Simulated assay, not measured.
Amino acid sequence: MNILITGATGLVGRYLIEKFINDGKLTAIKRPESNISSLEKYPIKWIDADIRDYQALEEALEGIDMVIHAAALVSYDSRDADLLVKTNVEGTTNLVNAMLDKGIKKLIHISSVAALGRSPEVVSIDEKHKWIESPLNTPYAISKYQADLEVWRAAQEGLDVMVMYPSLVLGKIADKRSSTQVYQYVIQENKYYPEGTINYVDVRDLSEAIYRLYLTNKWGENYIINAESIPYKEFFEKIALATGKRAPYKVVNKTSLKFLLFFTRLMKALGWHNSPLNAQTATLAQRKVNHINDKLLSEIPITFHKLEDTIIWATGKN
């Protein structure tokens, strides 16, 4: 089988390479400036292409039997709203249209639990959760939801799809990916922790789950991939313990939240701070939400890494 992976140099993509390398001939898309030194040990055909470039995608798809679509922009900055649409929505649209044009049947689409949406009254979310318009939906969530619509539209036109909904993906801090901001928040010994919960999954478990779901051959399905939901306070304390730092010790209440938002806006205006904290992300962090993984566990056998083990591995303390 000839497999194409988009986003192969990203946090998730590089671990998917390790899982699928023995299941066929791998082709991977990358940007010209991408660093592939850690992946050169694998027999991969690399192609410089951008998913926003339809013609480049057509060329990359030549002779391909299955696509794993892991390329995406992750940003919670409202200023990136247009770029999120161009990358996540238009890029995915280009990909599925090119696959349909070339008669390529199988697509594993790496989405996000954000694509399932949030609503004020819902505290438990599974794959059946219906998207509604809500102030809790970030520009990133909207872009991933719209990308999913394109995938399911292509499924109606004959594409065999599996859609994966990972929660926050925890990788190594040295990789400098989006999840490293969570570690850095504690390492920098910030004082405040939000009242809500965090849903997470170790990137090694995520790639294992995706591979095992692929082996089930159950196309047309979607799966939340989440290890657990725990309070931010506990999550931060475990990171602090592993890194020898002081854990955040002040809970964010309404008064302190207003101060934090004001301070963040001021620092951003002065060009001194690039924190993703804003009214929307701060409100989300205050909420207690659980992304339910029952469907996943009913389909495949998998044991998630303990959070302590993930943190030790991620921060290089082992």
Results as ranks from 00 to 15, higher is better:
I292H: 09
W46S: 07
P166H: 08
Y232A: 08
D202G: 00
E127I: 10
P276R: 01
T93H: 13
D23I: 06
K128H: 14
I210L: 04
N253C: 08
V85R: 10
H129R: 14
K102L: 14
I302R: 05
Y54G: 05
M267K: 13
K19Y: 00
A242Y: 10
I125C: 00
T92N: 13
K268W: 10
N22F: 10
E237D: 12
T27A: 00
N274M: 13
G7P: 01
M66H: 08
E237G: 12
L83P: 01
A285M: 15
W219L: 00
E308F: 03
L215N: 10
E133P: 00
A72H: 11
L11N: 12
K144D: 04
E157Y: 06
L284R: 11
P43E: 13
W46M: 11
L296W: 01
Y76G: 06
E33M: 08
S119R: 05
A28I: 05
K128M: 06
P43V: 15
T9V: 05
V182W: 05
E40T: 09
L61A: 06
T243I: 02
S256N: 13
A242I: 12
T197Y: 15
L206T: 03
N274Y: 11
S275H: 06
F236S: 04
T315K: 07
F235N: 00
K306D: 15
D23M: 11
L61E: 08
E221A: 02
I47L: 09
E195I: 08
G220T: 03
G91R: 10
A98P: 05
M1N: 13
E299S: 15
N97E: 15
A279G: 15
N226A: 10
I198W: 09
H305G: 11
L241N: 09
L168R: 01
P120H: 10
L95T: 04
S229M: 08
W313V: 01
K295D: 00
K106F: 14
I142V: 14
E221C: 02
Q156S: 11
R153S: 09
E121Q: 15
S178L: 09
